[in-house]
Design a protein around this nucleic acid. Structure first.
Lengths: 114, 114
DNA sequence: TTTTTATATATAAGTCAATTATATATTATT
DNA sequence: AATAATATATAATTGACTTATATATAAAAA
């Protein structure tokens, strides 16, 4: 389990980055994918995820397409043009944050891209 | 300037780690040292720092020694035994967090220790 | 076949670490 | 003499999150 305090501020980054990679995803799918990627160490809560998706949509970073699966409605989200650039910005912002924390915590952390 | 949302949850870690390294520091000195280390990109606010120092003291992770500098009183803080182990735990917690975020954000970030 | 688990979305109430604002006082610099 | 730097402290507010609650369908297990 990862510290929830540290996770604060990463939700939008995570959502935007996953959408950038997968093209289109629905909320429930995002939580499951994050669980899978982190071997259960990060579990997004619906109480945080859904309002965040709605906010990203209101800010025109993502758009929703409702798809009926039997009688159930699924909301697929896709990045908009500005969402695509925001995704990159957010990831870079996180990399910057890690680099600077490294300067403080001293073990000289850095990120191997690729 | 580093994202304030991302910085959330890192204050105790930063304070404990700096005290571990420097042995003894006072509040104002901590803010200046963090500014110096990050070239001004991280600026701790007193509104967060002082209450945090008081809380760490109440939790017996640090102890205070008041030193008079002229007519001004300076409060030097030192790690206790449990503060020392908590410092290590907190730094490790941060490293774990970064590693897991790397699994999500995919550029495969890792930390070069040393 | 009935019950439970998994799928799927949504919102309201509460928490808590931090920001912002305010207060106070000494010392050094311009 | 005025301003900036040093030094600590607390109160009010913000906001991203957690926890709790609500609703409904589909699949799997009892």
């Amino acid at each position: 389990m990862v510290s929830k305090d540290l996770l604060k501020g990463t939700l939008k980054t995570i959502v935007l980055k996953l959408l950038e990679e997968k093209g289109r995803m629905y909320g429930y799918e995002i939580t499951k994918e994050v669980e899978r990627l982190t071997e259960g160490k990060v579990q997004l809560t619906w109480g945080a995820l859904y309002p965040t998706l709605h906010k990203l949509e209101a800010d025109h970073f993502i758009t929703a397409q409702e798809v009926s699966i039997g009688k159930r409605v699924r909301k697929y989200y896709t990045l908009t043009e500005s969402g695509r650039s925001t995704a990159k910005e957010k990831v870079q912002e996180f990399l910057d944050f890690v680099a600077i924390m490294g300067q403080i915590l001293n073990p000289k952390p850095s990120l191997n891209l690729g």
